[in-house]
């Protein structure tokens, strides 16, 4: 039988940490995103032409939400599991009557919840800067939740893999941030020359942002089905890696 009490214990413990560092956890991403809106949405956006009949300020909203949600999911989940490893408190988790699935559910659930909260706060904040209409709200929530969970899973893997704080920041800084910026956060892929368009389709983030933007404005760089398949494949891949980690004890159990 599933150990619900333990999942709740990990979840509450992690969420308490979030609320203990409320300013750092929630306020700072909101401030930085607001700055993006001021610079790209209002200052530069007012001089940009509409993209697919959407004003530029509104066009970047899904991309900005994705940018923050993606990076926050990774950093929340990676830090969430790395910190117990670093402090040695992971042994308490390993000696508890918990399955790997329950451990992941507790940590990833908390990390995804935090990212979701940030995503919603940024969505609300965006209303102060630009007019936004969401054409497919159910799909918007689906994409948001799927992204939070998938990238929290990815962050969990990074947290297990990292041997020090440098490594913890290495993947988000060197791989994830460039992929997100080049994934169409601030532009449509169709605006790129043919060659770079083809290159962009190798970037998994393109599919996420495209699908998410479709849920807002009904227009996208790739089909909604392809976006969904891409995110499900990435989530499955992350789950398989985590399964292998617990099966082999890689960097958590000798």
């Amino acid at each position: 039988m599933i150990n619900l009490q333990a999942i709740k214990a990990i979840y509450v413990f992690e969420m308490t940490r979030t609320f203990r560092t409320l300013l750092q956890s929630l306020v700072s991403p909101v401030i930085s995103t607001s700055l993006y809106f001021i610079v790209f949405g209002t200052a530069i956006g007012s001089r940009m032409q509409d993209i697919s009949d959407v004003p530029y300020g509104a066009f970047i909203v899904p991309g900005l939400i994705m940018l923050t949600v993606l990076t926050q999911s990774i950093s929340n989940a990676s830090f969430g599991i790395y910190f117990p490893k670093f402090m040695g408190t992971i042994n308490e988790i390993l000696s508890a009557p918990l399955s790997a699935f329950e451990i992941v559910l507790g940590y990833v659930g908390a990390a995804a919840t935090k990212s979701l909260m940030i995503g919603i706060i940024i969505f609300i904040t965006a209303h102060f800067f630009v007019e936004i209409n969401v054409l497919h709200p159910i799909w918007m929530i689906t994409f948001l939740v799927l992204t939070c969970v998938t990238f929290s899973l990815f962050g969990f893997i990074i947290g297990i893999w990292a041997k020090n704080f440098e490594q913890l920041n290495l993947v988000p800084l060197l791989i994830v941030t460039p992929l997100v910026f080049l994934g169409g956060s601030f532009y449509s892929i169709s605006m790129l020359p043919d060659f770079w368009q083809k290159v962009s389709f190798f970037n998994p983030v393109v599919y996420l942002i495209s699908g998410f933007r479709w849920s807002f404005y009904g227009s996208s760089d790739v089909g909604i089905e392809i976006s969904l398949i891409a995110i499900v494949i990435f989530a499955s891949l992350c789950m398989f890696v985590i399964y292998r980690i617990f099966k082999t004890g890689y960097r958590i159990k000798q």
């Binding site: 333990a6 214990a9 990990i10 413990f13 308490t16 402090m87 408190t89 508890a96 009557p97």
Partner: peptide, 22 residues
């Protein structure tokens, strides 16, 4: 090995929860 920023009582409650106890 303890979570430095947590209080004594919360840390103990957490351990009980981990072992599936209400």
């Amino acid at each position: 090995t303890l979570e430095s920023f947590e209080t004594v009582s919360n840390s103990i409650k957490f351990s009980r929860g981990l072992f599936g106890k209400k």
